[in-house]
Each structure stands twice: as C-alpha cells, then as structure tokens.
Write a protein that binds this DNA or RNA. Structure first.
Lengths: 141, 141
DNA sequence: CGCGATTGACTTGTGTGCGACTTAATCAGG
DNA sequence: CCTGATTAAGTCGCACACAAGTCAATCGCG
C-alpha cells in the first residue's frame, strides 16, 4: 500500500470538503451565516424547536461545538434558545421570524452551488450515497 | 431544488470528512501526530526540505495555518525549520531522523484505515477520483 | 544605484471541532 | 423519600482554517 499524498482517499475527502465550504461561504455570507450555522438552519427548517442534543445527533456534533455556535446564532437573530419548562436540563432551539425567512433565500444558494458543482443530478446523488455509505462504515469501525 | 439536510451533497461530504479524521485520529495519536500534521508528513516524505509556501500549495493551506502547525511539529521533533541562506524570506522544512522513521509506521496506519473503509481498491480509487474532480470544479467556479 | 512593488512568512482575530471535565436537574433503586 | 447514577448543557483547553494585516527581504524598473 502506497503512502503517497495523491493516493489518499482521506486527502481527497479533506480537500473536497474544504473546497465545498469555500464555495458556500461567500453565498452564505449574504445570509449572514457560516457553513456550520447553515447546517443547523437546515435541521431547524425541517423541524423547528429541537433540543440541542437532537440537533447534535442530526449533525454528529457535540454540545461543546453547538452551544457556542447556537449562542452566536442567537446574537445574530436567527434562532432563540429556550430552557424547557418540563425538564430544566433541556434547551430547545427555535427559529425567529428572520430565521424562517432565510429558508427561501437558501434555495438560491442551492442553485448557485449546483452550477458550481457542474454535475448531473444522477452523479451527484450517487456520489452523495457513496459518501454516506463510507461514513457509516467508518463510524461503525 | 430541495433544501433538505439529507439531500445535501455538502453535508455528506462534511460528515465523511469528519468521520475519516475521527478514524485516523487514534491511529495517528500513536505516532504523536494530528491529522493535518500527518498530511504535512506525507508531503515531506515525498520530497524533503520543501519551503512553507510549497507545502501550502500542495495541501491548499495558508501560511496562517501552516506556520503554527509546523512550529508544533518542530517542538514535537518531527521536522526542523530552517531559514534559507539564499533568500532570508524563505523557510525550508526538513524531516528529522525521527520524522523519517515514522514513514514506515504510517504504512500500518494506511492498512488499518483500509480495513475500516471496507471497500475494494477499485471503488476506493473511483471515489477518490470523483472527489478530486469535484474539488477541481469547485475551485474553478 | 535607489525606491516603490512584490513576495514569503508571520501575526491577529474569529469560528469551528472535539476530548475532558463541570454543574445542575432528573431518575431509579432501596 | 433519599441518595447515588444518569443525563443535558455548558465550560475549558488545544488545534486547526482562513481573512486580513504586518514586516522584512528581494526584485525590477528608471
């Protein structure tokens, strides 16, 4: 097995991930969101009012990452964090009116990215599924 | 175009990249290297004594990232940084004896990862090439 | 030769990721 | 009911990434 840099799947993945973030960043800057913040918005646009741990499971992110990130999103005015009344340990995260409005503009970001990627929907879906399968195997191992 | 989280190639990529790093981290910990430090080692194992900017081009990393990273690697004893005598602006990075020795052990890390990935060489190469192609298109756009 | 432009590394500031730990609230067995 | 275990967030420390700016060395053109 070779140890060459260009042979490495890990390096290809690392590069592609950063290139993707770089492509998204200027588009998301117009929504005043960072890339991980955008991912949180995707989660909340699907189901509003989720607890921190649920968001963490969805994104595979720790509370150590999410707590400060969500606080910044709250300062920005995209979400509101509310301590649950039934269980005081739990913090639920809700979209603000502004946060809900952003969903429409996010669709444009999607379209922009799709141009940049320059691949067919079929290839894109296939690549996505390959990556998710790989992620599953890596997490299991 | 959908804005669902699971539809997103970007999210699949983000997850796969982090899962890959997580898989590598415990293996690299035995070499006392972080994942980005390991990438620098791959670059130097190919060609020793490269300048900071050359390493940066190879890994698509900025000197703002590399300078502190290389300093930590120097403290660890994997590399040595030397100011060029011909051009005092340039810093060249050399493997130490210890750094050279690590190359052999890195091969074991490769093997371990290959098990974790659980894919054929053919599929792995295909995925790698798809990712590199995507990276190229994203960087161009 | 002299000086403004460029270059290469470094520094600073902000935002993730994540391991390890803390704290407060809830749960569960006796 | 009480207390030890568990759980959910939060905190702390460290290591990337990367935009923006600094600084010294070198280059290039008049």
């Amino acid at each position: 097995m070779s140890v060459g840099l260009d042979d490495q799947l890990c390096f290809a993945l690392y590069n592609a991930s950063r290139a993707m973030m770089s492509a998204y960043t200027p588009l998301l800057a117009e929504l005043d969101l960072t890339y991980p913040q955008y991912l949180v918005m995707l989660v909340l646009w699907e189901t509003d009012g989720q607890r921190v741990s649920a968001i963490g499971e969805r994104l595979a992110l720790d509370s150590a990452t999410l707590t400060p990130l969500l606080k910044r999103m709250e300062v920005r005015g995209a979400v509101e964090r509310r301590r649950s009344t039934e269980d005081e340990r739990v913090v639920e995260v809700f979209l603000t009116a502004d946060g809900k409005k952003l969903k429409k503009r996010a669709t444009d970001v999607q379209a922009c990215f799709f141009d940049a990627a320059g691949m067919s929907v079929k290839d894109l879906v296939a690549l996505r599924d390959d990556l998710n399968a790989l992620t599953g195997r890596l997490r299991a191992a």
